[in-house]
Simulated assay, not measured.
Amino acid sequence: MCVRLAEDEASEGLVWGSVPLEMLYAAEPWRTFRWYAGQKHYSGSYWSSTQSDHVIYESRLELARLLYADFDRDVTAIVAQPFLRAGAGLRRSAGDGGGRAGPAGRR
């Protein structure tokens, strides 16, 4: 597994169970999306009040998850594609994203 910490810096060869959650929450999205007329998928960016920044998404399903997470008071962080799975016998794949829940009502 690989995690992009900054635009030009990545940690590679990480084992899933040993990666600190703080590293995933601080990670940059693994890839960016292109938009063009007539594309078959629906990708974009959503302004998240939880993050106070744009969060990218690749499909309407991911956008729906972002909306639910952004309105959930227990969610304190949202990340988009924080890691890349790669290895012997695996197809390279960027994880969709996730959120972090904190104490109820805390934002």
Rank of each mutant, 00 (worst) to 15 (best):
W47F: 10
E28F: 07
L84V: 04
P82D: 05
M23R: 05
H54I: 15
W35F: 13
G102M: 08
S11F: 07
R73H: 06
D8V: 06
G95T: 01
D70S: 07
E28K: 10
L84A: 07
A101P: 00
D70I: 03
W16N: 08
L90I: 00
L61S: 07
D70Y: 08
G105Y: 00
A10E: 12
A101T: 04
L5K: 15
L66R: 10
R106D: 01
Q51R: 14
R106L: 05
M1Y: 08
R65H: 03
P103G: 08
V3F: 01
R85Q: 00
Y68V: 12
S48K: 04
Q51W: 07
A27C: 03
F83N: 03
Y25C: 13
P20E: 09
D74A: 12
S52H: 12
R4D: 04
E12T: 12
A101M: 05
V55W: 06
T50P: 01
G87M: 02
Q81S: 11
W35M: 14
E9A: 08
S18R: 11
E12R: 13
L14K: 10
C2Y: 10
Y68F: 12
R4L: 11
A64D: 12
L24A: 05
K40P: 13
W35S: 14
S52C: 13
A86P: 00
R100A: 15
E62A: 08
Q51I: 15
K40I: 14
P29W: 08
